[in-house]
Amino acid sequence: MLWVKAFHIIAVITWFAGIFYLPRLYVYHAMADDQASRERFKIMERKLYRGIMWPAMMVVIALGLWLISFNPDYYLKSGWMHAKLTLVALLVGYHLYCGKLNRQFKDDQNSHSHVWFRWFNEVPVFILIGVVILVVVRPF
């Protein structure tokens, strides 16, 4: 079980690294004023989203389910776990929305400013804080 937990944490860190970095790329992409830069950002965004974030998210979910399977009676009756899984679902939604933004940038259809992306980049910080507190403190 500890090996599963260790790899789950590694996958979470990897996923969050991508979730924090991709919107930062969007900030710079939205500010780019030359075609070469925009094309470079498209490649970076695609590789980060498809090559790192998607696999990390899938590993997080798979290992998280595996961890729950070790003691489903406890985890599925715990309020903190329900709250945590709700936050994870929100993070998956954020991840998928990043994919939509990726497609908009790819098609040169972005309609958001770099300032909007700076605020958008802060959303997962609050999810991370909530998840860590729920897992460590288990307040309910």
Rank of each mutant, 00 (worst) to 15 (best):
L2F: 03
W3A: 14
K5V: 02
A6P: 03
A6Y: 14
A6N: 05
H8E: 13
I9W: 12
A17Q: 01
G18T: 07
I19W: 02
Y21C: 04
P23K: 00
P23V: 02
R24A: 04
Y26P: 05
V27E: 13
V27L: 01
H29C: 10
A30C: 13
A30R: 12
M31A: 15
A32F: 07
D33Q: 12
D33L: 00
R38H: 09
R40Q: 06
F41A: 01
K42A: 01
I43F: 03
I43A: 07
I43K: 14
E45G: 04
R46S: 15
Y49V: 07
G51A: 04
I52H: 10
I52A: 11
I52G: 04
P55M: 08
A56W: 11
A56F: 08
A56E: 09
M58I: 15
V59G: 05
V59E: 09
V60E: 13
I61P: 11
I61E: 12
L63V: 10
L63I: 11
G64Q: 04
L65V: 15
L65E: 13
L65N: 15
W66C: 11
L67P: 05
I68L: 10
I68Q: 10
S69L: 01
F70V: 04
F70W: 13
N71E: 14
D73I: 00
Y74S: 09
Y74I: 04
Y74P: 08
L76F: 05
W80Y: 15
L87E: 04
L90K: 00
V92H: 02
V92W: 02
V92S: 01
G93I: 11
Y94K: 10
L96Q: 13
G99L: 00
K100V: 06
R103A: 07
Q104C: 03
F105E: 06
K106Q: 15
D108N: 15
D108H: 10
D108K: 09
Q109F: 00
N110M: 13
S111P: 03
S111R: 14
H112L: 08
H112P: 09
H114E: 10
H114T: 07
H114A: 15
W119I: 06
W119L: 03
F126H: 09
I127E: 02
L128T: 07
I129P: 11
G130L: 02
V131W: 02
L134S: 12
V137M: 08
R138D: 07
